[in-house]
Structure formats: structure tokens, C-alpha cells
């Protein structure tokens, strides 16, 4: 009944013929087993994309400069074309993403400021030291760009169980209460 995982992999890449794609979609939409397979495919992609990428825009500009130097040298072109005179266009999605990121950062600062008015941080608990002996931050997730929540110190909060990520409906069913 369930299609081969190889077919699901092609389906995931949107590489099936329309007719087959429709058949697979109909099946997957009602098959938890295949949905789990799809989620695994998603997780594999997510994992390999999860690592941060360097700045390719800079790389693009720098490499262009180097290529032009070599090409012009070979052709004895003088003077060298001034890079800054070139209109170097950023691709549209990149430009849109940059703008979105910029305004997102501004929105966060606004959100953070707004949130800051409604929270109180407890001055009585000793401030948890986030740095190790060398002074370096232990984890890059504790950074200035994050959305910050300050909550009143509640000393008995720590159970440190395995973190749980679950759909609300599933949690209600398992717990029986809110």
C-alpha cells in the first residue's frame, strides 16, 4: 500500500510526474507512517541546513575582483576596471531577504522594548554567570539578537527533564488537563 521510500524521496523533491504525484499525495495525506517518513526527510534536510553559512555575498565580490585581476593581467588591460564603478547587483531574493532581516531586527528591538515594560527581573537571585573561565560565551544562542523574556525568579522551577516538543492536542490527551 505504502509507496517505496525511494518514491517518497522523489516526492519530497517534487520530482514525480503529475499523475504519480497526485496518487502519492492522496496516500500520504492519510497515512501516518508515510507522514513520518516525510518528516524524517524534512529533518535530514533541516539538519544539513542547520549549520550557519558564511557570507557568500562578500565571497562573490572578492572572487570577482580576483578573477578580473587575472583576466585583465592576461589581456594587458590598463587601467584595471575600478570595481566600485561596477553596478554589482544583488539577486532579488537576496535583497528582499536582507531588507526583511533588517526590518526584522528593528521589529525585535521594538518588541523587546515593549516587552521590557511588562516584566520584572528579580534582583535578589545571584546572576547566573553565562561565561566560562576564559570569558568566552558558552553558547552562541545566548546573544543580543534573541527575543528576551525576563521572568520572576522561581527557585523551584528546575526539573531538567528531557525537553518536550509536542502538539497541543497530543499533550492534552496524554495529560488529561491543561
Amino acid at each position: 500500500m505504502c509507496p517505496d521510500v525511494e518514491i517518497l524521496s522523489s516526492y519530497y523533491d517534487d520530482e514525480l510526474e503529475d499523475s504519480q504525484k497526485q496518487l502519492v499525495k492522496t496516500h500520504v495525506d492519510s497515512c501516518p507512517h508515510c507522514q513520518k517518513k516525510m518528516a524524517e526527510l524534512g529533518l535530514i534536510s533541516a539538519s544539513i541546513h542547520a549549520e550557519e553559512e558564511p557570507d557568500f555575498q562578500m565571497a562573490q565580490m572578492n572572487t570577482w575582483n580576483k578573477i578580473m585581476d587575472i583576466v585583465d593581467q592576461k589581456e594587458h588591460k590598463l587601467p584595471k576596471v575600478n570595481f566600485w564603478q561596477r553596478r554589482f547587483q544583488i539577486s532579488f531574493p537576496a535583497a528582499a531577504a536582507l531588507v526583511a532581516a533588517f526590518v526584522a531586527v528593528l521589529s525585535f528591538s521594538v518588541i523587546t522594548f515593549y516587552m521590557g515594560k511588562h516584566t520584572t527581573s528579580s534582583p535578589s537571585s545571584p546572576e547566573l554567570n553565562m561565561t566560562d573561565a576564559s570569558g568566552a560565551m558558552m553558547d552562541d544562542m545566548f546573544d543580543d539578537n534573541a527575543i528576551k523574556f525576563d521572568i520572576p525568579a522561581i527557585n523551584t522551577i528546575i526539573n531538567a527533564e528531557e525537553p518536550l516538543l509536542i502538539r497541543e492536542v497530543d499533550f492534552m490527551n496524554r495529560d488529561g488537563k491543561h
Binding site: 529533518l43 533541516a46 537571585s125 544562542m141 527575543i147 523574556f149 521572568i151 522561581i154
Partner: peptide, 29 residues
């Protein structure tokens, strides 16, 4: 990324969303 500062604990949580198909998403926490 969210930074939760609770006095005697600190939590940093990073959520990332990936599309799987149509309305199906993968949430990485």
C-alpha cells in the same frame, strides 16, 4: 532565538521552520 532569563536558570531556545510539503512543516527546536 529566544532567551529566557529566570534568575536561577537561563534558557536559550532556537526555533527553525522548514517546509515539507504544502501546509506541512517541520519545526526544529
Amino acid at each position: 532565538t529566544l532567551n529566557i532569563n529566570g534568575g536561577n536558570f537561563k534558557a536559550a531556545v532556537r526555533f527553525t521552520v522548514y517546509p515539507i510539503q504544502a501546509d506541512n512543516l517541520l519545526l526544529l527546536a
